Lab assay of single mutants.
Amino acid sequence: NQASVVANQLIPINTALALVMMRSEVVTPVGIPAEDIPRLVSMQVNRAVPLGTTLMPDMVKGYA
């Protein structure tokens, strides 16, 4: 199964993503693939992302 990017902490709106904020986990539904974690670093989220939430492409500015 494909691992997705999951929030490792609460990520406030407009926060630039850092490695420590993300982990990979096999979840349903599938979100952003875990292999894209390096690409996500320094991109901003466009909403608050609670701990344990799967990151979806529409949550990250400039990802989709």
Rank of each mutant, 00 (worst) to 15 (best):
N1S: 14
N1L: 15
N1P: 15
N1Q: 15
Q2W: 15
Q2A: 10
Q2D: 08
Q2N: 13
A3Q: 11
A3E: 10
A3H: 10
A3Y: 09
A3C: 06
A3V: 09
S4Q: 01
S4T: 04
S4I: 02
S4D: 00
V5C: 05
V5Q: 01
V5M: 01
V5W: 02
V5T: 07
V6L: 07
V6H: 00
V6R: 03
V6F: 01
V6W: 02
V6G: 00
V6N: 00
V6S: 01
A7W: 02
A7D: 01
A7L: 04
A7Q: 02
A7M: 05
A7V: 08
N8I: 07
N8F: 04
N8T: 12
N8P: 00
N8K: 11
N8R: 12
N8E: 08
Q9H: 10
Q9I: 15
Q9R: 14
Q9P: 01
Q9V: 12
L10V: 11
L10N: 15
L10T: 11
L10G: 08
L10R: 10
L10F: 15
L10I: 10
I11G: 01
I11T: 02
I11S: 00
I11E: 00
I11K: 01
P12R: 09
P12D: 08
P12I: 05
P12A: 10
I13L: 10
I13R: 13
I13W: 08
N14A: 08
N14K: 07
N14Y: 09
N14C: 06
N14L: 07
N14T: 04
T15S: 08
T15H: 07
T15W: 05
T15C: 04
A16G: 10
A16R: 11
L17H: 00
L17K: 00
L17Q: 01
L17D: 02
L17Y: 00
A18I: 11
A18C: 06
L19K: 11
V20N: 14
V20A: 14
V20K: 12
V20M: 13
M21I: 02
M21K: 02
M21V: 03
M21Y: 07
M21Q: 06
M21L: 05
M21P: 01
M22W: 01
R23Y: 07
R23L: 05
R23W: 04
R23T: 08
S24I: 08
S24P: 15
S24Q: 14
S24N: 06
S24R: 12
S24C: 05
E25I: 09
E25D: 12
E25R: 12
V26Q: 10
V27T: 13
V27F: 03
V27R: 13
V27A: 07
T28W: 12
T28P: 00
T28E: 11
T28L: 15
P29M: 05
P29V: 07
P29S: 03
P29F: 03
P29R: 04
V30I: 11
V30R: 12
V30M: 12
V30F: 12
V30E: 12
G31Q: 02
G31T: 02
G31N: 00
G31Y: 01
I32T: 01
I32N: 01
I32R: 01
I32H: 02
I32Q: 00
I32L: 05
I32M: 03
I32E: 00
P33N: 11
P33T: 07
P33D: 06
P33Y: 08
P33M: 08
A34Y: 09
A34G: 12
A34F: 07
A34Q: 06
E35Y: 14
E35T: 15
E35I: 12
E35W: 13
E35L: 11
D36R: 07
D36S: 12
D36T: 07
D36V: 08
D36L: 13
D36P: 00
I37E: 01
I37P: 01
I37S: 04
I37D: 01
I37R: 06
P38N: 09
P38W: 14
R39F: 13
R39V: 09
R39T: 15
R39Y: 12
R39S: 13
R39E: 07
R39M: 11
L40M: 05
L40F: 01
L40Q: 01
V41Y: 04
V41M: 06
V41P: 01
V41G: 02
V41L: 12
V41E: 06
V41D: 03
V41W: 03
V41K: 05
S42F: 09
M43L: 15
M43I: 04
M43T: 04
M43S: 06
Q44H: 14
Q44P: 07
Q44K: 11
Q44E: 12
Q44G: 05
Q44R: 14
V45D: 02
V45T: 13
V45G: 03
V45E: 02
V45R: 00
V45Q: 00
V45H: 00
N46L: 12
N46E: 07
N46R: 10
N46V: 11
R47D: 06
R47H: 10
R47N: 06
R47V: 13
R47P: 03
R47Q: 11
R47M: 15
A48F: 11
A48N: 14
A48G: 07
A48C: 07
A48P: 12
V49I: 15
V49L: 09
V49D: 03
V49P: 03
P50Q: 13
P50V: 07
P50D: 09
P50G: 13
P50K: 10
P50R: 08
L51E: 15
L51K: 10
G52F: 04
G52L: 04
G52Q: 03
G52D: 12
G52N: 10
G52R: 04
G52M: 05
T53D: 09
T53V: 15
T53Q: 15
T53F: 10
T53G: 10
T53E: 10
T54Q: 03
T54L: 04
T54R: 03
T54F: 03
T54W: 02
T54V: 10
L55A: 02
L55N: 01
M56V: 07
M56D: 04
M56T: 13
M56N: 05
M56H: 08
P57Q: 08
P57E: 06
P57M: 07
D58F: 14
D58I: 09
D58Q: 10
D58R: 07
D58A: 13
D58N: 08
M59E: 02
M59P: 02
V60D: 00
V60S: 00
V60H: 00
V60C: 03
K61C: 05
K61D: 12
K61I: 14
K61A: 13
K61E: 13
K61F: 10
K61M: 11
G62A: 08
G62Y: 08
G62D: 12
G62H: 08
G62E: 09
Y63L: 06
Y63N: 03
Y63V: 04
Y63W: 13
Y63D: 03
Y63P: 03
Y63C: 04
A64M: 14
A64G: 13
A64V: 13
A64D: 15
A64W: 11
